[in-house]
Every structure is written in structure tokens, then in C-alpha cells.
């Protein structure tokens, strides 16, 4: 067994204008097979990825936002969202999807995956990783 490392996926781009957001999600899904300590960070335009009620029928691309809700099954349970990025964009935590995971260490109780943090906390989280992957 190799040592478990802390991986942070940093998401700073809106979902459909570029391929970054979808690529990030795919790498998270692939990386989940390696049993590492994975966290996701959403800041700047990245917070738009988590908005409720996305419907891509009119633009002919896949709506991948529901897939974030499956990440709990992949043991990806930490979604850090930056408060300042939300506020700058006129958003609050209520505008974000409900994303939960079942805590295996707590009788499979359903818990929220999204944790809103401020900018200083986000900086500290980034500074506490073994590997940072940016999208």
C-alpha cells in the first residue's frame, strides 16, 4: 500500500463555455479509483458549475451537473466553495445544488458535501495539499 496523498482539484471556470469543467470532473472520476484523499475547490467562475436547475437541452451539450451528486459514491465528499466568489456573482449557498454523501463512519447518515469557506480558508486549504490540479 502506498501512502495516501491529499489531492485538490481547483475549479475556476464556468461549465459550458470551455471544456475545463467537464475535463476536471472526468479526471476526478478516473482519479477516484486510486483511493486518495480528494477535495474539490470551487472559486471564481468555478462556482457556476454547482448552480441548480442547469438545463442544456437548448445548446446540444450534455448537462453534467447531476454527476456532481454521484461523487459521494466515489468517496469524494469535500466540495469547498469560496464565499467571496459567490458574493461577487450575486449568489448565495442556496443557489447551489444539494450535494450529499453517506458517512460510512456515522451509520451512513446523509451529510452535505458542500462547505462554504472564506478566501483565507480557501488559501489555507490550497496550502495544505500534496497535489493541486487546476482546471
Amino acid at each position: 500500500m502506498s501512502e495516501i496523498k491529499k489531492f485538490l482539484y481547483v475549479n475556476r471556470k464556468a461549465p459550458y463555455g470551455t471544456i475545463y469543467a467537464l475535463e476536471s470532473l472526468e479526471v476526478v472520476l478516473i482519479g477516484a479509483a486510486f483511493d486518495q484523499d480528494v477535495s474539490l475547490a470551487f472559486l471564481d467562475d468555478g462556482v457556476f458549475q454547482l448552480l441548480k436547475k442547469q438545463d442544456t437541452a437548448g445548446i446540444g451539450v450534455k448537462n453534467f451537473s447531476p454527476t456532481f451528486r454521484a461523487l459521494g459514491d466515489y468517496d469524494v465528499t469535500k466540495f469547498y466553495v469560496e464565499q467571496e466568489s459567490l458574493t461577487e456573482r450575486g449568489l448565495t449557498a442556496d443557489d447551489l445544488m444539494d450535494i450529499t454523501y453517506e458517512d460510512e463512519d456515522d451509520d451512513y447518515e446523509e451529510k452535505p458535501s458542500i462547505r462554504v469557506v472564506n478566501r483565507d480558508e480557501m488559501a489555507a486549504i490550497m496550502g495544505d495539499q500534496d497535489v493541486v490540479l487546476s482546471f
Binding site: R12, L43, D44, R119, M122, A123, A124, M126, G127
Partner: peptide
């Protein structure tokens, strides 16, 4: 882009 501004906002002492 706001990339440099965002980087400056998240860089820690010693970085």
C-alpha cells in the same frame, strides 16, 4: 482574465 488577481488573493507567505 482575473487569474493573477485570484492567485494573489490565495498566495500565502513563503510562496
Amino acid at each position: 482574465t482575473t487569474t493573477l488577481a485570484s492567485c494573489l488573493n490565495h498566495a500565502l507567505e513563503g510562496d
